[in-house]
């Protein structure tokens, strides 16, 4: 089964390596890992999609939590959450079939962000299912290149549950 884990960590050099080293050493199966800013200055947010059983995920969460710079780890899959992937896809689209390509993309609300002589670049956003379906729909036209973000996710409003509060506390201290 797949689980989505949200991690808030201090934004310091080496944190990404530490997380990567831990995942590699303990042999965890990570499908995607993305990192960016959080709402708190100096704190980054990692979103990780991992494959495994409940016991494995329990271990990942606890082992990550032991890293000194990691402030909070949450298994987002325990409650409803919003998950988004962003993907850029370069599709072969010679003029004679271009309307078909655009029409297909339209069905997925794929947005053309670059137009060239022989190809188009689309941007598509959604959960993993939608992004993958878009990829399948484009395949017959000829996919030239793909760049994908991996998942970014957060708990749905009202389902944050019992939060450790560590991050909020840190935020207050900063203020």
């Amino acid at each position: 089964m797949k689980y989505v884990i949200g991690v808030l960590s201090e934004d310091k050099p080496g944190v990404l390596s530490r997380i990567a080293a831990l995942i590699a050493r303990r042999g965890y199966n990570v499908e995607s890992l993305s990192v960016g800013h959080s709402h708190i200055e100096g704190i980054s947010r990692f979103t990780m999609v991992v494959e495994g059983d409940e016991r494995v995920v329990d271990q990942i969460v606890k082992q990550l939590d032991k890293l000194i710079e990691i402030v909070e780890v949450r298994n987002l899959s325990q409650a409803p959450y919003v998950e988004r992937w962003i993907m850029l896809i370069k599709v072969s689209a010679p003029l004679e079939i271009r309307p078909h390509v655009l029409q297909t993309a339209e069905a997925f609300r794929g947005k053309a962000v670059d137009v060239g002589g022989d190809a188009l670049v689309f941007e598509v956003t959604g959960d993993k299912g939608k992004v993958e379906a878009f990829l399948s729909a484009m395949r017959p036209f000829g996919i030239l290149e793909v760049a994908s973000s991996g998942a970014v996710a957060m708990q749905r409003v009202g389902f944050e549950g019992k939060v450790s509060g560590r991050c909020e506390e840190y935020e207050l201290k900063l203020a």
């Binding site: 960590s9 201090e10 890293l67 000194i68 990691i70 909070e72 840190y170």
Partner: peptide, 10 residues
């Protein structure tokens, strides 16, 4: 010292 992510007592 305060480490935002290290509170073994908790």
């Amino acid at each position: 010292l305060e480490f935002p992510g290290y509170h073994p007592e908790r």
